[in-house]
Every structure is written in structure tokens, then in C-alpha cells.
Design a protein around this nucleic acid. Sequence first.
DNA 1: TGCGGCATCAATCGAAAGGTGGAGCCTGGG
DNA 2: CCCAGGCTCCACCTTTCGATTGATGCCGCA
Lengths: 212, 212
Amino acid sequence: MTAQPPVRLLLADDHPVVRAGLRAVLETEPDFEVVADVPTAEGAVDLAARLDVDVVLMDLQFGGRMLGSQATAEITARDGAPRVLVLTTYDTDVDILAAIEAGATGYLLKDAPPEELAAAVRTAAAGKSALAPTIALRLMDRMRTPATALSRRETEVLQLVADGLSNAQISKQLFLSQATVKSHLVHIYAKLGVDSRTSAVAAATTQGLIRR
Amino acid sequence: MTAQPPVRLLLADDHPVVRAGLRAVLETEPDFEVVADVPTAEGAVDLAARLDVDVVLMDLQFGGRMLGSQATAEITARDGAPRVLVLTTYDTDVDILAAIEAGATGYLLKDAPPEELAAAVRTAAAGKSALAPTIALRLMDRMRTPATALSRRETEVLQLVADGLSNAQISKQLFLSQATVKSHLVHIYAKLGVDSRTSAVAAATTQGLIRR
DNA sequence: TGCGGCATCAATCGAAAGGTGGAGCCTGGG
DNA sequence: CCCAGGCTCCACCTTTCGATTGATGCCGCA
């Protein structure tokens, strides 16, 4: 066992308390070094480029508008980019998939115990994928039932339905005809095994296909 | 300015990271002393009785069954009970009302900056009510529009709508005629200021009038 | 190159949901 | 005692939704 250079960390979370907590937890590990923490996704993108960091711990839900997944995508797009470990409160499918598509190396829940957190950081620093057991299970489920996979456009329509819009309103918002909206809905109902917009929203919500 | 005895704190949150963060943030204040932190609501009730604490910082959502408001009620029921400051992530009406009814002295959001947090703890220790500005505003809204209060039966109907049931299914489940279900819905729409079942569910969800 | 999935649109028809305007019953508070 | 408000129900009508069928263009993959 040779002396390793420390793992350099960047923390991105809009909750001051969580930032302080992550710092406190991670700095007890002798081989970790928290180089900075930021309260915004934009700040994370900026500092990830300018500082020399190995792993970014990224929250997905920021108070503002820019999403953590978007920031993740921007960070991982660069050459020699740091690994991004997504750290979020709830484990909905949309979030997980968005994060993985954005190039996240791992996905953790905020209720993870410190040891699991530290282990995930080391795994990520080594370039390997780090998924919380809960998340891994959920992904397995996803693979087994391909029916649950809505297309991008379908998800978009369903989200607007969940927001309470009528077919007419959705068609205007997405610059579609009502026929198209209905067509998407028919496919959505078939995939979810339901027969009305409200039950589609209910099913999609429990399965974490849309955000509330 | 005389030397005050320190404010003795108990932290209750199921997220290790949040506990560490609260500890880190609050211990920088010289007049605060964190005497313990616990990961469960039950533990909070227990320690609040056995230790000499002034203020309990209580999360509402615990991993298991939601006991935060219940624990608050149990703690505040005793003689010489500490003040309970509820600290939660999201600001839904049901949560706020439940906490206040349970006897919470204050209600804070987890994204509060450290200064606000410290100020609220001091306010609570002094026995005064401490509400985050966002929360206070929301409560004012609540008072101004008593319409937002759905009756028991209306809430019941709306919950079933949110679960994806049709009027026919709801009428069977509640042993009503469809006319009655429709009648309830009309009143619900009026109170929420909407005109369809899906938008009623959306509105009620954001206002925390129904679960999930 | 052709097949399948996705996205787009159209027409039609019956069923469900929403809008309006009632009405009777019961309970609790002024 | 009466009135307000919650809960239950009815009829009639309009609008929206869902189901069905069918069509087009695009793209990726075998």
C-alpha cells in the first residue's frame, strides 16, 4: 500500500446544511480533500473546469432552474473531466436515467451512511461505476419491464398532463395538433396499462416516470 | 451583555449527512451546544425526555413511517418540554399545519442559510415562534383564502381521483351515486380554482392537500 | 433495403367528464 | 329556532376525452 495522492472533491448542493454535512463527513477521511463547495449548478460547471478536481458530488434538485443533470452533462463533456457522482434525495426513475445519460459515474441517495458515501467516492475516483444498492435494484426492474419505457415525447406530454393541462392546452404548448397529443396518449396508456389520463399520471408517479 | 448559559440542542434527522451538517453549522455558534443527534423519531422522543435540552431540531420525513409530527406532539405534551423546531425539505401545507398542530414552535426549510437557522434556534429557545419567511407567507395566503380548505369528503374523493379512479369507480368505492361524486368535484374545482380533475390533482399536490 | 419504432396528423363515434340549476337531509352554532 | 354548511342525489346539456382506423415521413439497424 503506497501513499496515494488525495482525492480532490468539489461539492455542489444548494442546501448550506448539506454542504457543511458532506464536508464534515468527507474530511474525516484522510485521503479526501474538499477543494470547494458551491450552491449552484452553474458554479459547479465553472469550478469543475477551473479547479483540478477528481470527483464532483452533484445534487440533482437545485432551487433555481438549471438542473443538476444538465450541469453533469456539461462537466462530463470536456476532455479530462472529473467524475460526477450524483447525490439526490429521492430515487425516481427519471432522475436516475437523466443522470446516467448525462454521464454520471454514480448515483447515491442522501440518506446513505458515511461509509457508503466514502466508498462510492473512492469507486468513482477509480473511474468505476458506483450505484447505491436501491438504485441498482430499481435499474434491474427497469430492464425486466421494457414496457415502462416511455419515449421522450411521450414523457413530455405526460408531464403536461400531470400538470393539469387539457389536450388543447398541450397541443398549443408543444406546437402540435390535438390529434397528435391524443395519439401519444393512446401509446402512453398502452405502455402503462391504463385507460385514462388521471390513472396514467398515478401510475407514472408511483413508478417515478415523471416529477411531481 | 451577560454570559448566557448555552442553548442545548438535540438534532433528529435520518440523514447522516444532514445531522453532520447541522452539527457543523450550529457548533460554530459559541452559545449553542449540540448535546446529541439521533436518526429516528422514536429516539428523539426518548432523548428529549431524558436529556436536558432546550430546543429539538426535528425533521418531518423520516425514512420509515412518517413520525416527525407525531414525535413533535409527544415531546411537546410533557411538562417542561423543550421547544421543537421543525426542519423539513419541502413546504407543503399539510406538513406545516400538522407540525403547528403538533405544537412545533417554528418551521424551517432545509435550504435556509446558517444565519437564519441560528436566528430561528435563538428565537425558539426564547419561547417565541420562528417561521421561515416563505412559510409565513404561505400561512398568510391560507388565512386569506379559506376556500383552500376542502371538507373531509371532498378530500377523500380527490384522493381517489389522484389515484386514477373514474367517477364510476369512485362512486362504487364510496357507496355514492355518480351524481354525488360529480357534485363533490364541482365544489372541489371551485375551491381550487380549476376546471378539470387532472388540474385539481396538480393543484392539490403542489398545495399538499393530498398525499404523495 | 426493408422493417420497426417514433412522431406527426385526420375523421369519426360513443363514453366520460364538466356546467348549470336545482332539492332534501342532517348537524352544530348563533 | 333557524340558518349555514356539508353531504347526498337528480336532470339536462355541452365539451372533452378515449377508442378506432388509417396515413405520412423520418431514422436507425439488421
